[in-house]
Design a protein around this nucleic acid. Structure first.
Length: 792
DNA sequence: CATTTCACTTAGAACTCTACCA
DNA sequence: TGGTAGAGTTCTAAGTGAAATG
């Protein structure tokens, strides 16, 4: 009854396996469904797999095709259309609010003006004017209210305006264009690339490219063979184009960049020695040069520009196993650049002897300049800064959209839970996808080409990324955005587990798509039915802020600002973990942890020594305060020796460093230097100490450095140490917990800033402790509009 | 429609500044 | 008082999703 066309022919070939499938299914669908439907659909599922598998193993393109066909058929399915119809009334009800482009007569109306916009700028005028009327409404407002002159922008509070919609982003726009990186300056003659041990004189263009690599030889990129080969190929090309050099360079392995590398290091050292006065002067010069580019005039208001600097040439640093990593990113010329500004705005002067690629006047977009980059063929934009009104408005809209999801999330969840048992493969896959996106905050996961790193999101998960451990544990292991690993072992809904097993059923094999019928556009189209503008990414924003709010609600409103701050960061961390925001463990991390651990050990040892000393002074204490002295045997002999060694090593280092330093000073002052003898005496003293420690270890009686100290004094010192141990342990835990988690990303992009403002107000934590300067600027709208009662 | 293009958000790495500590 | 770890900022790669295109 529910069989779709494409599934019928498959049935035949799959029959042989149907019994196995039925077994699994019988435990799965019993009772919930009409038996006939369930058995039929189960058979169908099984048979679909081979199709996808074949498609998947051929090529991404082929995969897509087969998908498309299958999906089409599903859409034609009777039961499907019935179910979606059930949802439709809702959608149409909400339609008036949303101007979401649907398949309706409207659509054509909309498209037309846009088409004409692009193709013939002149035709633009007509449709624009209409929209401008809308926009103009709020303009006079701002102008009338505001103080007379250019400072208008300071008083323009867009969030107090109630008309933030509209295609048009601006009516007038003036800016100064972009700053180009300085031209290449040839290296000093003595700094040369070596090839096969011989110095090579390269044409400047080739030397520049070699230098790009030379600066990276010691980095992970420089050591990556793909990076090396991509670099080498492009380098050879540049060299050839520039006329070559005296030696033929054919083998990357024979290139020696050490001279170049050393030179760059030298330069860096040099830079360190510049005095603060010099630095200040350099900075001032830079500031005056850049000032005109830093701001622009948007509808007459001054706004900040984000990245007004054109990206300098270099080697493309792809993340993860990127096939194009190391390729040469060419220098961008003014001729490559498209400027976007108002019709009446003066066109900034291009660099001498150059022309701009194009001047555009498109007020439906929010970029000021753009160029095409040669490695991936992508577009780079110069845009407004994060604290600009346009960015603020879209940020605000994003969070309002996520807030709106609150009203629909229940329906969405009920629906996908129910559809987990749908008779249609498409619906089941869609339900599981929605579940994963909602519960585990996975990204949508669009298709990627083989020109890019192999990373996935929800819809693009493959067989090998998900393993199943009955009864209902799933292990996710895949590389997500930026090739960051997502590894989670989690328990899932029983029906989700069963579905995943079906989606993985043979003959599906590694390399095949888990969700062969779903991609982000299909999924998003479906999500629109619940709420206009609902897409996969909205769930991440919604859940991140929701989790944050729930976590903040658990924090007791008491204690010091610092304690509250720690609690806030802990809440922030749960969000970061949900979103899998990671950072590479700092290279210094392990050493840092070891150092803190040693410090703790030393303090523990000191504490025990003090307690032992207390007993030396008054043995009766041992009976009187049993618990207090229990720990004096906690430290093993081994631990003790380790601490001794550490303390001694530290002392020695200290003495030696001081010795060297003092001598340098004496030398500068032309005073006689300290002799080796003096150092030796000091070191000898430490050796004495070492001996004493050894003795102490065997006798168990600590040396009393201050024989006059009373028991009370000792106890006070113990207490102080305990305090320090506690804080250091906390610090260690914090360091460990945070070592792999990046809190910044969620604070910047996912957590509604008004929630943070609410926390600040309600808990009396200065906003400066929660938002850095940049964040305060970016979220000014939130700071000014939310109070202690605000809720998401 | 499926695919490509465009515009925008999101992301960790790399760099710079600053506060803290011996 | 300089050396450094961590905080803060900048840079640009890598996603998402809608619209244009053929």
């Amino acid at each position: 009854m529910n069989i779709s066309d494409d599934e019928v022919p498959l049935n035949r070939s799959a029959r042989a396996k149907s019994s196995v499938i039925k077994d699994e299914d019988s435990d799965m669908d019993m009772g919930d469904k009409p038996p006939s439907a369930s058995s039929v659909s189960d058979d169908d599922y099984d048979e679909e797999a081979p199709i996808k598998k074949r498609a998947a193993s051929v090529s991404p393109a082929a995969r897509k095709k087969s998908k498309a066909i299958l999906d089409d058929d599903d859409f034609d399915d009777v039961p499907l259309s019935q179910t979606t119809q059930a949802l439709k009334p809702k959608v149409t009800k909400k339609e008036p609010k949303a101007k979401a482009p649907k398949k309706e007569p409207k659509d054509t109306l909309k498209k037309e003006p846009k088409d004409t916009l692009k193709k013939e700028p002149k035709a633009k005028a007509a449709p624009k004017v209409k929209k401008e009327v809308k926009e103009v409404k709020k303009e006079p407002k701002a102008k009338d209210d505001g103080t007379p002159a250019p400072e208008d922008n300071d008083t323009y509070k867009w969030w107090e305006s109630n008309d933030l919609d509209g295609e048009i982003k601006w009516t007038t726009l003036e800016h100064s264009g972009v700053i180009f990186p300085p031209p290449y300056k040839a290296l000093p003659k003595r700094v040369k690339l070596l090839y096969n041990g011989q110095p090579v004189t390269l044409p400047p263009a080739a030397e520049e490219v070699a230098g790009f690599f030379g600066a990276l030889v010691e980095t992970d990129h420089g050591k990556n063979p793909v990076f090396q080969q991509n670099f080498f190929k492009d380098f050879q090309e540049v060299l050839k184009e520039a006329g070559g050099c005296d030696i033929e360079i054919t083998d990357f392995a024979k290139m020696d960049f050490s001279k170049m590398f050393a030179y760059f290091e030298e330069k860096r050292e040099e830079k360190k020695t510049t005095t603060s006065a010099e630095k200040k002067k350099i900075k001032e010069e830079k500031d005056t040069l850049e000032a005109p580019y830093k701001t622009c005039l948007l509808d007459g208001r001054k706004e900040f520009v984000g990245n007004f600097r054109v990206e300098p040439p270099g080697l493309f640093r792809g993340r993860g196993a990127h096939p194009k990593t190391g390729k040469l990113k060419k220098r961008v010329q003014p001729e490559d650049i498209v400027l976007n500004l108002g019709k009446e705005a003066p066109v900034p002067k291009p660099p001498r002897g150059h022309k701009w690629g194009e001047i555009r006047h498109d007020n439906t977009v929010a970029w000021l300049a753009m160029w095409r980059e040669n490695v991936l063929g992508g577009v780079k934009y110069v845009r407004f800064a994060a604290n600009s009104s346009l960015k603020g408005i879209s940020d605000f809209k994003k969070f309002e959209k996520a807030r709106e999801l609150k009203l629909h999330i229940e329906k969405v969840r009920v629906d996908y839970r129910q559809k987990l048992k749908s008779d249609l493969m498409l619906e089941r896959q869609m339900a599981v996808c929605t579940y994963l996106i909602d519960v585990f905050a996975l990204r949508a996961g669009g298709e990627k080409t083989d020109e890019e790193a192999d990373t996935v999101g929800c819809c693009s998960l493959r067989f090998e990324h998900v393993s199943l451990k009955p009864p209902n544990t799933v292990v996710f292991d895949f590389l997500g955005k930026d090739s960051i690993r997502y590894y989670q072992e989690v328990e899932v809904d029983q029906q989700v587990f069963k579905n995943l097993r079906i989606f993985k059923k043979a003959p599906k094999k590694p390399g095949d798509d888990l969700f062969d019928r779903v991609d982000p556009s299909i999924l998003n189209k479906h999500l629109q039915n619940y709420m206009p503008g609902l897409t996969a990414k909205v769930f991440r924003t919604y859940n991140a802020t929701k989790v944050m709010q729930d976590q903040l609600n658990l924090i007791p409103n008491e204690g010091s600002v610092n304690e509250k701050l720690v609690a806030f960061n802990a809440a922030n961390r749960t969000v970061a973990i949900l979103c899998n925001h990671q950072r590479t463990i700092p290279k210094t991390h392990e050493a840092g942890v070891a150092k803190i651990q040693e410090k703790i050990q030393e303090m523990v040892w000191q504490k025990i020594r003090l307690k032992k000393l207390m007993l030396v002074k008054d043995l009766t204490l041992k009976q009187k305060r049993k618990g207090y002295f229990e720990e004096i045997n906690d430290l093993t002999k081994e631990d003790e020796r380790a601490v001794h060694k550490y303390v001694i090593a530290k002392e020695i280092e200290k003495v030696q460093k001081k010795f060297e330093k003092d001598n340098i000073k004496l030398k500068e002052a032309k005073q006689p230097l300290l002799s080796k003898e003096e150092l030796k005496t000091k070191l000898d003293k430490i050796r004495e100490l070492k001996k004493e420690y050894t003795k102490e270890a065997s006798s168990g009686k600590p040396i009393d450095l201050h024989p006059n100290d009373t028991v009370e004094k000792l106890e006070a010192r113990v207490e102080k140490l305990e305090e320090r141990i506690k804080t250091t342990c906390l610090q260690l835990k914090d360091k460990e917990d945070n070592s792999q988690v990046a809190l910044g990303t969620s604070k910047l992009n996912y957590i509604d800033p008004r929630l943070t403002v609410m926390f600040s107000r309600k808990f009396n934590v200065p906003i400066e402790k929660l938002f850095t300067k940049t964040l305060r600027d970016k979220f000014d709208w939130a700071i000014q509009s939310a109070d202690e009662h605000w809720t998401f």
